[in-house]
Computed example of a mutant assay.
Amino acid sequence: MTGIQAIVSQIATQAVEQQQLAASATGAGPADSGGFSEIFRSAMRQTEELDAKAAKSVTGLLSGDGVEVHEAMIATQKAEMAFELALQVRNKAISAYQQMMQMQF
């Protein structure tokens, strides 16, 4: 699961860079524009928690700790959906950043 953690870390880093760029462009400080970054961090934490829960469920299923197959599948699907959402948000943020960089003033 280190691949997911690396991507989550990359997403969080890019979000911070986006916030710093926006803050420097508007003259606002980081404390003034904490809305998006805080929501994004919260979503990343939830994604990591779902990933950990899915890993724990699968491990419990394989070791015979009383985890049912459907519980493991549901946890895995939730983690996958959260990861896909985070990936799409990252892709949209990168796309928006690239569009802004192509603008001419």
Rank of each mutant, 00 (worst) to 15 (best):
A82K: 04
I39P: 00
A15Q: 13
G3A: 03
A6E: 12
S9C: 08
A72T: 01
Q10C: 01
L62G: 13
M44D: 12
G60N: 00
M101S: 13
G29R: 03
F105Q: 02
S9F: 09
H70I: 06
H70D: 09
S24N: 14
T26W: 05
A22M: 14
G64H: 14
L61Q: 01
S24L: 13
E49I: 04
Q20N: 14
S42W: 04
A6R: 11
R45N: 04
Q14A: 15
E48T: 05
Q46T: 12
K56L: 12
A55D: 04
I4G: 01
A28S: 03
M44G: 15
A12T: 09
T59W: 15
A22I: 07
S95L: 11
T26L: 06
A75N: 13
D51F: 13
K53L: 06
R90M: 11
S24V: 07
S42H: 08
V16R: 15
T76K: 05
F105W: 11
V58A: 13
A12M: 06
I11H: 07
A43I: 02
G35T: 05
T47D: 01
V16H: 15
D51C: 08
A52V: 04
K56P: 03
A22P: 07
F40T: 03
L61H: 03
V16G: 05
A75Q: 02
A15N: 14
F36P: 09
A96E: 08
K92S: 04
D32L: 11
K56T: 13
V8G: 03
S33E: 06
S95E: 12
A22H: 11
R41K: 15
A52M: 10
K53W: 06
M1K: 07
A52L: 15
A93L: 05
A6D: 12
I74A: 12
D51L: 02
A6T: 10
A12R: 14
L62K: 06
V69S: 02
I94Q: 14
Q10Y: 15
R90K: 03
S63Y: 06
Q99N: 14
N91H: 09
L50V: 00
A54N: 01
T2H: 09
A43Q: 09
K53Q: 10
G27L: 06
L50R: 14
A86E: 04
V8C: 11
G64R: 12
Q18R: 12
A55F: 06
A79M: 03
H70A: 10
D65R: 01
S33V: 08
Q5G: 03
V89Q: 03
V89R: 04
A22G: 04
Q18L: 07
E80D: 11
V69P: 04
S57I: 00
E38D: 13
Q104S: 12
A96D: 13
A6G: 04
E68Y: 10
L50W: 02
V8F: 15
E17T: 14
A82T: 00
F83M: 05
S95R: 03
S42A: 07
I74L: 08
K53G: 01
M73V: 12
G29M: 02
M44S: 09
G27W: 06
G27P: 07
D65N: 09
T76I: 00
A54Y: 02
K78A: 09
Q99T: 12
A31M: 11
S57T: 01
Q99W: 02
A54H: 01
A79R: 00
T76A: 11
E48W: 01
S37I: 10
E80C: 08
F36A: 05
F83D: 02
Y97P: 05
S33I: 14
